[in-house]
Write a protein that binds this DNA or RNA. Structure first.
Length: 681
DNA sequence: TTCTGGACGCCA
DNA sequence: GGCGTCCAGAAG
């Protein structure tokens, strides 16, 4: 204890620091609580080497409020920091002088022991810190809301009745999955949802079944529109007051209000976006993850936990059931099936055929090039025909891969991508009459000539929704054209003929289903330099195609991509599970995730090397790189480490130790570690 | 982030 | 020997 100690800490000192302080402070003698006087606190600091519990004394006057899980403020190295009190104990094994808690912020036990242990496990799994995970798991406090009483349920909290199988009747294993839920078991399934709008109700039925067995449920979906869909379905199956929807857009007060209603046991079911994976549902019986291939399920903040991983860890730890579903299947989900962790839950072929639209590939580049008439709209004749037919009976969806008014440019002669004359960066065009410019150095490309073939003309490559809408407006002058993208999203459209141009994930639902869908620029989606390019293309295509009427009602889909590609075949046959197995097999051969656990170390070359030197890698680890990431401006390098799954925690432990050793010294920017990086190429 | 203590270097 | 600077390590 220094002679400058704070009066909070009960130390008497004879020389006041300043007159002002002397006048204000009447240092009161504090006494520790009689029972369990030691509080073990996780302090909110981003420093990895401080990722452990610190002991404080509980002063007598905070004894009642200082309950496990409550928020506290503590003096830590001279600063006042927030933290959570994890437990009260009789003695500390710390040798030095303990400080007192500075304040118990409130007695609300916001960090339950289940969530605190889960957060610890997640931090370890991702080589991150507990306090980083807790920042995601526990929402910021809203004092006024916390003081409100929770209204009792309208129906007095009556039991939830066990529903019938509903949409699960279409799946041979569906009823037995529900029966296992009803019996309080913990079945785990990877679910291939039938195309169409029933998926949300299927989730609601599973949740209602678990609630009827007296346990709770957590449902995580990619975005607010999906939250609304499931929320509506849950309302229909559970009645009022049994569930809440948690999304980031609610605003802090309402968000905290709903979250508290979960913590306090008023709501037993939660649907939300990724942060809802930590919702403090008591006696959890089921976790559900919808469309697990969507990138938004990976949290963008350190340590970047992924909802699939967190929810499966959570289900495993508490003996809850798990339902991981979507219109497609990720390689990761395929691995959960292959390893025996989960069972596949799919409809038979006949049911798939009766629900899916007819899907036909149109050409790819060769047909596109020949199809002189359609070139202006970048549409081969099959696509034009299908769109015209479809537009006679209802809305037609047009999916374009990138957002905004934007096009990449390629040589009109040889299709090589158009490059900047001074820095070789990719050229793009933005705005209707703008000049092509370089996406790296920003120079306007005036006199351009192809570096490969000498051709002088460029053609537009992948373009965004608005430009496509303009082109289509010309091709279909009689039709209303609407767009839906991140900026200005449509939730649903009616059944009148119209062209709906949307980017992936922003496709509105059509009343009665779309008559047809065109999936544009497929060649560009599939050609991306990314390990998951094909899987991601199929996911986007299937998510759009699932909004189209069944074949029996005339639903048609045209995908502009090379018919021979396996990913296109998987769409045509509607066989995402088969495709996922194939992907997984391929990744096994390549030694890429999810067949192995991978971690990346990214940063300035010297930093990357320094960190790598400090890691005591497990024997089975393999180091790849470091190599430049292609971001020449940043001079950035990346190394990858891969290990078999059995060595995952050995790897993350070693990474954490190395990062902690560094952080003890350097406050400076340092190499960034990421476990399960989303894109490894 | 902030603080402290120990190591080391420079000068008298 | 004494003083000042720098850096590693700790943080209850």
């Amino acid at each position: 204890m220094t002679p400058q100690a704070d009066p909070d800490e009960g130390v008497l000192f004879d020389v006041p620091r300043t007159k002002a302080v002397a006048a204000k402070s009447t240092p009161k003698k504090r006494r520790p609580a009689e029972e369990l006087p030691i509080a073990r606190v996780v302090v909110d600091t981003p420093l990895p080497h401080l990722d452990r519990l610190f002991d404080y004394q509980v002063p007598q006057d905070m004894d009642a409020a200082a309950v496990p899980g409550c928020r506290v403020r503590v003096r830590f190295n001279g600063q006042l920091l927030s933290g959570f009190l994890l437990e009260r104990v009789a003695e500390s094994d710390f040798g030095g002088q303990l400080a007192y808690l500075h304040q118990v912020v409130s007695a609300e036990p916001v960090l339950t022991s289940e969530i605190s242990r889960l957060a610890r496990a997640v931090a370890d799994r991702y080589a991150g810190t507990l306090s980083d995970v807790l920042r995601l798991a526990v929402p910021p406090r809203h004092a006024r809301v916390e003081k409100e009483d929770i209204a009792p349920a309208e129906d007095g909290g009556a039991e939830v009745r066990c529903p019938g199988p509903g949409p699960w009747e279409d799946y041979p294993a569906g009823p037995s999955f529900l029966e296992a839920l009803r019996a309080g078991h913990a079945p785990r399934a990877v679910w291939s949802a039938l195309p169409g709008p029933d998926w949300a109700d299927a989730i609601a039925v599973a949740v209602a079944t678990v609630l009827s067995a007296g346990r709770g449920a957590v449902v995580v979906v990619p975005d607010g529109r999906d939250v609304d869909a499931v929320d509506t379905a849950l309302g229909a199956r559970l009645g009022p007051d049994r569930h809440v929807a948690l999304t980031a857009e609610l605003g802090p007060a309402e968000r905290y209000r709903r979250w508290l209603s979960v913590l306090r046991g008023r709501a037993r079911a939660v649907v939300g976006t990724r942060a809802a994976m930590f919702a403090p549902v008591a006696d959890l019986g089921l976790v559900v993850l919808w469309d697990d291939g969507d990138d938004v399920h990976a949290d963008p903040h350190a340590p970047y936990p992924h909802a699939r991983t967190v929810l499966s860890m959570r289900a495993h730890r508490v003996g809850a059931a798990a339902l991981i579903g979507g219109f497609t299947r990720t390689a990761e989900a395929a691995r959960l099936v292959a390893s025996g962790w989960a069972h596949p839950l799919a409809a038979d072929r006949a049911a798939v055929r009766s629900r899916a639209p007819v899907v036909r590939p149109a050409g790819g580049d060769s047909e596109l090039a020949r199809d002189e008439a359609a070139r202006s709209a970048r549409l081969p004749s099959l696509a034009l025909r299908v769109a015209r037919e479809g537009a006679r009976s209802g809305p037609v969806l047009v999916q374009v891969p990138r957002r905004g008014y934007f096009a990449s440019l390629a040589c009109a002669g040889c299709r090589a991508s158009a490059r900047c004359g001074s820095c070789r960066g990719p050229l793009a065009i933005r705005g209707a009459h703008a000049m092509p410019y370089c996406r790296w150095c920003g120079r306007i490309a005036g006199e351009w000539r192809c570096g490969t073939c000498g051709h002088a003309r460029m053609r537009a490559g992948v373009v965004g929704a608005r430009r496509t809408a303009e082109e289509l407006g010309r091709a279909f002058p009689a039709l209303a054209v609407r767009t839906s993208g991140r900026d200005g999203m449509l939730t649903k459209v009616g059944d009148r003929p119209a062209l709906i141009v949307a980017t992936p994930g922003a496709e509105p639902v059509a009343e009665g289903g779309y008559a047809a869908a065109l999936l544009l620029d497929g060649w560009a989606l599939v050609g991306r330099a990314d390990l998951r390019a094909s899987e991601e293309a199929l996911r986007r295509w299937c998510n759009a195609a699932a909004l189209v009427r069944p074949a029996s009602d005339g639903g048609q889909v045209v995908v502009l991509a090379e018919a021979a590609l396996p990913v296109v075949q998987a769409l045509v046959r509607w066989d995402p599970a088969g495709f996922a197995e194939r992907e997984l097999a391929e990744r096994r051969e390549l030694g890429f995730p999810p067949a192995v656990t991978m971690a990346s170390v990214t940063g300035a070359p010297a930093h990357v090397r320094e960190l790598l030197d400090g890691i005591e890698l497990p024997e089975s680890a393999e180091l790849l790189g470091p190599v430049g990431t292609g971001d020449d401006a940043e001079q950035e390098e990346r190394a990858l480490v891969r290990v078999p799954h059995t060595a995952t925690f050995a790897l993350t432990g070693a990474l954490k130790a190395a990062v902690a050793a560094r952080s003890a010294r350097k406050g400076d920017r340092f190499a960034q570690v990421r476990v399960d990086p989303l894109h490894v190429v």
